[in-house]
C-alpha cells in the first residue's frame, strides 16, 4: 500500500460565533495516497475548496474546524506548532489554485516569487539551476527567460504552469489542485492536466484534485468523493461511480455533464491505471 499523504477524518467546519453559527462542512472524510489522483467532485458551494484548505490547515478568517482530525504527511495538524506547520507547507504539501492571474503578486517578478518560496525554507538565495529545472519540468522551453517577467506579461496557462513549478520547487509530495483548469483555454487545460498526470505517474506525487468537470475526473482520477451541501454523499472508484452512480446528486451531475458534453463511456484504462 502506498504512503498516505493526507488523511481527513470526520471533518466539521463552522463559520460565525454564538447563535449565528452556520455549519459549512460536516462529517467529511477522505484520504490522498502517493501516486494517485483523488478528486473531490461537486457543484459550487458544496464545500470542496474549504475541505482542501482545511486539509492544509489554511482556513480563511472566520471559518474554524469544529471537529475531526487532519493528518498531513503523517503528522496531526492539531499537535503542530505554527512554525512546524509552516515548515511542512511548501516542503511537504503545495496548493495550486484556480484563476492563476490573481495568484501572483503584480509587484513581483516570477523570479522574485521563486526566491520568496526558497526564502521561506532555505537561505533565500535565488538558485537559478533549480528554478530553471522545475520550470523545464512543466514544459517551459526557455525557463531562464521566464524569471524576469512580471505576472501580467504572461498568459493564464503559463502562470498556471509556473504555479505548478513553484509547488515542485521544494519537492512537495502532496499537491492540492483546486480547480486548476478553470479559466484556462482548452489547449492550456490539456497541458496542465498532462503535467499533473505525469507528476502522479512518473514521480509518484499524491494529488488531491478539486473539480466540477467530470471529464477531468474520468481522465485523471482513480478515486472520487462526491460532495453536496457540505457532506460526502458518495465515494469510491471513479469507474464504479460513473457506471453505477448510487446517489441522486451524482446521477444529476453525470446527467448534466452528458447533456452538456455528450455521452462518452468511461474508458476503464484511463483512470484506473496504477
Amino acid at each position: 500500500m502506498s504512503r498516505e499523504l493526507l488523511c481527513v477524518e470526520s471533518l466539521r467546519l463552522r463559520a460565525g460565533e454564538g447563535n449565528e453559527q452556520r455549519s459549512l462542512v460536516s462529517d467529511v472524510s477522505f484520504s490522498v495516497h502517493e501516486g494517485r489522483v483523488t478528486t473531490l467532485i461537486g457543484s459550487s458551494g458544496s464545500g470542496k475548496s474549504l475541505s482542501c484548505l482545511a486539509g492544509l490547515g489554511l482556513l480563511p478568517l472566520g471559518v474554524r474546524r469544529a471537529g475531526g482530525r487532519v493528518t498531513l504527511c503523517g503528522r496531526d495538524l492539531d499537535g503542530l506548532s505554527p512554525a512546524a506547520h509552516r515548515q511542512m507547507l511548501g516542503r511537504e504539501a503545495a496548493l495550486i489554485m484556480q484563476n492563476p492571474m490573481s495568484c501572483f503578486d503584480p509587484l513581483h517578478t516570477i523570479g522574485s516569487h521563486f526566491q520568496e518560496t526558497l526564502a521561506a525554507h532555505e537561505n533565500g538565495r535565488l538558485d537559478m539551476d533549480r528554478c530553471t529545472e522545475v520550470l523545464a519540468r512543466v514544459g517551459f522551453e526557455q525557463p531562464r527567460q521566464m524569471l524576469p517577467l512580471f505576472p501580467f506579461e504572461m498568459s493564464g496557462g503559463m502562470l498556471q504552469r509556473v504555479m505548478i513549478a513553484l509547488a515542485l520547487l521544494l519537492g512537495a509530495r502532496l499537491l492540492v489542485a483546486d480547480e486548476p483548469t478553470t479559466d484556462l483555454d482548452v489547449v492550456s487545460q490539456a497541458r496542465v492536466l498532462d503535467i499533473l498526470d505525469d507528476l502522479c505517474r512518473e514521480q509518484g506525487l499524491g494529488i488531491l484534485l478539486v473539480t466540477h468537470d467530470l471529464s477531468i475526473v474520468a481522465r485523471l482520477a482513480r478515486e472520487a468523493y462526491v460532495m453536496h451541501a457540505g457532506r460526502v454523499v458518495e465515494q469510491g472508484e471513479v469507474t464504479a461511480i460513473f457506471e453505477s452512480p448510487r446517489h441522486h446528486v451524482t446521477r444529476e451531475l453525470l446527467r448534466a455533464h452528458h447533456d452538456l458534453a455528450g455521452f462518452a463511456p468511461v474508458d476503464a484504462s484511463c483512470g484506473a491505471k496504477t
Partner: peptide, 15 residues
C-alpha cells in the same frame, strides 16, 4: 490579506 497571492504565499510556508 484576502488576495489569492497572499494565500499562495502562505501555502509556500512564508511567515
Amino acid at each position: 490579506r484576502n488576495r489569492k497571492y497572499v494565500l499562495a504565499a502562505r501555502v509556500t510556508g512564508s511567515s
